[in-house]
Amino acid sequence: MSASAGAPVQLRGLHKRFGDTVALDDVTFDVAPGELYGLVGPDGGGKTTLFRVLTTLLLPDAGSATVLGRDVRTDLWEIRARVGYMPGRFSLYPDLSVEENLAFFASVFGTSITAGYELIAPIYRQIEPFKTRRAGQLSGGMKQKLALSCALVHRPELLLLDEPTTGVDAVSRREFWDLLHDLQASGLTIVVSTPYMDEADRCDRVALMQKGRVLAIDTPRAIGAAFPRALFAVRGAPRHATIEALRAYPHLASVQPFGDTLHFSDRRAELPPAHVMREVGAWLQGRGIREVAVAPIAPGIEDAFMALMGDAP
């Protein structure tokens, strides 16, 4: 997936400042045709600014951005016609009905609901029974499906989604990602930002962003594998006392709660895992922790992401 003339998104040394705040700092990457590309990072990482540059709503201070082979500085009208964008905040007209919103977006792009129906059908059919309801009165999951339908109604070649699933329940999120995979299978290139690491795992590649910089770009699997130390899943009761005991462990590199376990790594990367497991188990038992269990575990993207962010305490 090296740089090529055909890459739907090509970014070279993008910079953007707002006053003293650096929103984008030397951002360079390519998105390949048909790729499902994830932008992952904390709030303030630069993801939304990047989407605004890609949609020609904001000019970069320096560097270049090419979208579908066109320059964001000079070819804004062509880019806008060929890109679908779902902003992070709900941005439909709450006083218009579901159908009116969709018809409006279609007409702005010089098309009609009928012309674009095939692409949006799998999504729009789910909200069509409510087509006369005002958009402001839809549930969160239905608003999201309407917003996606509006972003797709003009049959774009590139779909840009800024945190589409924030505030959406776990089941609806899963269904939304199934839809994204269907859209990808139809040939669409998709760039999506998310704070959810399980969603990052469903991307072909992800760029981890923090404070405007790209920390890493790779497949989710490769990013996880780049975690710098051996990782262990630790259990113990009481749970919070177990965290405290691990924090007091002299060779601690990191400890983070992970579902019903704690992910722990030892600073002495050269030690055999069996040695670490024995020593940590004994340390916890010596501090009165019950039901201690320590097992090796393969690091995932969330582990790697936190390590890259600096293993905050």
């Binding site: 990072g41 904390p42 709030d43 990482g45 945190e163 924030t166 505030g167 704070p195 690491m197 983070q256 709660p257 969330e302 992401f305 936190m306 962010m309 905050a312």
Partner: peptide, 13 residues
């Protein structure tokens, strides 16, 4: 939903 949209490190904090 106190942690909606928040990154993994901040959620844990």
């Amino acid at each position: 939903e106190p942690t909606g949209g928040v990154d993994p490190v901040t959620r844990r904090q």
